[in-house]
Amino acid sequence: MISLRKTCFAVASAFALTMAVEAAPAAAQVDSHGHEMCNPITNITPQNPIHSLNGNLVLQQSSYPCPVAEAPAPAPAPAPAAPQTYTVYFDFDRSNIRADAEPVLRQALEAAQAGNQNFALTGHTDTVGSAEYNMGLSLRRAESVQNWLEQRGVPANATSVAGRGFSEPAVPTGPQVREQRNRRVEIILQ
């Protein structure tokens, strides 16, 4: 009879523990050293604790420290933004700013003012004429854009100017070929 009584008590205790597991409010289960403990066999976790009749948390022998959630890896640094590029075109053998260049130059100016950036101005030509002449013409085109920017408040030290002549065509052509897309200044905001 004693054996039967112990068995009934054990079954009743197991039933009560099961009910307590399902009905228990979320609370951290802490051992005597202040560590959260988990038990995978009876599903005892800090979110699903078992309380004794006197309200204390019950720790099973197979309880172990709960896994500590690792801090998420820091997000990778954002890639540097691609530089903004604008292109203005020039008439054959000219370095003056055309009317159709004004809107493009204004966009570049507004973008630079919003981000307090510097301008890299690189002039280019088509392949008509000598390399020496075209190098000078490409530089004059870049300086023309620099002057336009300075007249609108951009300090000279916020611009760099370079000429490439016909060495870096936008559209590859043979020698002595007029090509509008090669007669340009590329404006790069840095």
Results as ranks from 00 to 15, higher is better:
residue 20 A to Y: 12
residue 41 I to E: 00
residue 126 D to C: 13
residue 84 Q to A: 15
residue 11 V to R: 06
residue 54 N to A: 04
residue 125 T to C: 08
residue 143 E to M: 09
residue 91 D to L: 15
residue 141 R to V: 13
residue 83 P to T: 12
residue 30 V to E: 00
residue 53 L to H: 04
residue 53 L to M: 06
residue 110 E to Y: 09
residue 119 F to V: 07
residue 88 V to P: 07
residue 126 D to V: 14
residue 79 A to C: 03
residue 94 R to N: 02
residue 11 V to I: 15
residue 36 E to T: 01
residue 11 V to G: 05
residue 12 A to N: 09
residue 95 S to R: 04
residue 118 N to C: 10
residue 14 A to K: 07
residue 57 L to E: 02
residue 61 Q to F: 11
residue 66 C to L: 05
residue 24 A to E: 11
residue 132 E to T: 05
residue 67 P to R: 11
residue 78 P to A: 14
residue 117 Q to G: 04
residue 47 Q to H: 03
residue 79 A to I: 11
residue 47 Q to D: 06
residue 139 L to F: 07
residue 94 R to Y: 08
residue 143 E to D: 00
residue 82 A to I: 10
residue 49 P to I: 10
residue 120 A to R: 15
residue 118 N to A: 11
residue 123 G to Y: 00
residue 124 H to A: 14
residue 86 Y to W: 05
residue 132 E to N: 03
residue 93 D to V: 12
residue 43 N to Y: 12
residue 67 P to L: 15
residue 136 G to H: 09
residue 77 A to I: 12
residue 137 L to H: 06
residue 32 S to Q: 08
residue 114 A to F: 02
residue 41 I to R: 00
residue 118 N to M: 10
residue 128 V to Q: 07
residue 91 D to Y: 15
residue 26 A to D: 01
residue 92 F to W: 08
residue 31 D to E: 02
residue 46 P to C: 13
residue 116 N to F: 12
residue 127 T to R: 04
residue 73 A to M: 10
residue 106 R to L: 14
residue 66 C to W: 04
residue 110 E to I: 14
residue 39 N to V: 05
residue 32 S to G: 07
residue 18 T to W: 14
residue 73 A to L: 13
residue 45 T to E: 10
residue 135 M to T: 11
residue 58 V to A: 05
residue 76 P to N: 12
residue 108 A to V: 01
residue 127 T to M: 01
residue 23 A to L: 12
residue 134 N to E: 02
residue 127 T to E: 01
residue 109 L to M: 01
residue 80 P to Y: 00
residue 64 Y to W: 06
residue 15 F to S: 13
residue 12 A to D: 08
residue 42 T to K: 02
residue 136 G to N: 10
residue 138 S to V: 05
residue 18 T to K: 11
residue 38 C to G: 00
residue 106 R to I: 15
residue 46 P to D: 14
residue 125 T to L: 07
residue 19 M to S: 13
residue 19 M to H: 14
residue 94 R to E: 03
residue 40 P to W: 15
residue 34 G to P: 02
residue 73 A to E: 10
residue 25 P to H: 14
residue 26 A to F: 05
residue 73 A to F: 09
residue 126 D to E: 06
